[in-house]
Design a protein around this nucleic acid. Sequence first.
DNA 1: CGGGACATTGAGGAGAATCAAACAGGGTGG
DNA 2: CCACCCTGTTTGATTCTCCTCAATGTCCCG
Lengths: 236, 236
Amino acid sequence: MYVTITGDQTTPEPLASISSKITRSPTAHVKAGAHLYFEGDRVEWLYQIKSGVLRLARLLEDGRRQVIAFGYPGDIVGFPSSGRHHTDCDVLEDACLQPYRRSMLESGEGDPQLHHDLLQAALREISAMQDHFMMLGQKSAAEKVASFLCVLMQRVGEEVAGETQIALPMSRGDIADFLGLTTETVSRTLTQLRKSGIIDIHNIHTVVVRRPKALWSLSLGERDAPGPVRVAGSAL
Amino acid sequence: MYVTITGDQTTPEPLASISSKITRSPTAHVKAGAHLYFEGDRVEWLYQIKSGVLRLARLLEDGRRQVIAFGYPGDIVGFPSSGRHHTDCDVLEDACLQPYRRSMLESGEGDPQLHHDLLQAALREISAMQDHFMMLGQKSAAEKVASFLCVLMQRVGEEVAGETQIALPMSRGDIADFLGLTTETVSRTLTQLRKSGIIDIHNIHTVVVRRPKALWSLSLGERDAPGPVRVAGSAL
DNA sequence: CGGGACATTGAGGAGAATCAAACAGGGTGG
DNA sequence: CCACCCTGTTTGATTCTCCTCAATGTCCCG
């Protein structure tokens, strides 16, 4: 999952509908905390995520870390470069994965449809990463956090009592390293969104979007938030 | 071309050696200022750059721009997403391009070798973009500019009188929008590199690297620059 | 109940953006 | 051929966003 909010309403990351009927390996179940692979490992399998959440990250020797992407249902992870993994990947939330042999992507003998689908997934990946560049390079902290929440809302938001609820299985530090911010800035920004009545923080790992339009506006860098301000209770 | 300086000495972006013998279209020559395609255009062709420099960019409606990549010899541009271009592309320096039909990437009928090479290029693209994330999200202005110059040095540096000369066909604004900085910051950073004797600015479009090791150190965020400081003349 | 990891909040400062002004350089027209 | 202009670059002054450092708070798990 990348941050692909760019202004147009298009959803550039539709679920990859892999349509292979044959040579399907049994799905793998992995537990939170497990590592799928490390940078430099030889690539044997790609995985399509059926459920759960993964984290892909890259490290600099001085300790700085970039979270490259979060893997959500529908995403495919493990694209090889020169036959090797280029990120670390571990599990944030118990996941169910559909493995595909690397050869299905690179040669596709025996299943042209699967080969085609995996290739299309790689091309969508490139396009989504380009949008993510825009976010990393040009957006302010508030826009980044708002964009991040918007994407999650679209991808995995759950309707609860007429409002959209978002699970955040990752830590604030993960979000920070994903958006190019610090833990403190992410935390402060979320607090501000809460105080302005745009979101509600049910608990550390669950937020509720109260004013989706305002969140969307913020993600695009618009100053004023549309819609009525419904701050319940708080006299701040 | 992406900024792929991550600490290890590996060169993650070797020239793609497309080895097709058949169905080769004649090369196309395009002049500086020309547009190859726009965001949203239907993709008919991919291009491998034989000479010259291209610029790939994406715009936000409020005017902000992200330069996604510069296209240098060896690079392939035009990867489709849902059959369409996802960036604008224009020519910074007169270029010679080898076109490949989109179908050669997506189905590859008739030339499996070409199909394979284009796919590998797409996978290398993903990997290079991941490194670029690291740069955009985690590096300081000085590190970004130094990293940028290091990559250019490797890719297109010319040995002139024992020193490496780099051509910069793009504007400071282009560099800024590529690195997630402003024109002024890029300019100031280059000036600082000049004053510290690491580079020389022959003219606006040509810099000479005087102390490659120091530039490399800076790109990794190391405080002190190794090697003797040979500031000729200037008493600053 | 206590400990540890993570999150929030605060104060202060650094780095980059912004605003503004001078500067260079290349092309055009007189 | 030169003066002028236009665009892009450099430099300076100032502002402000976000980072850093530090303290406090909260939640989960043994």
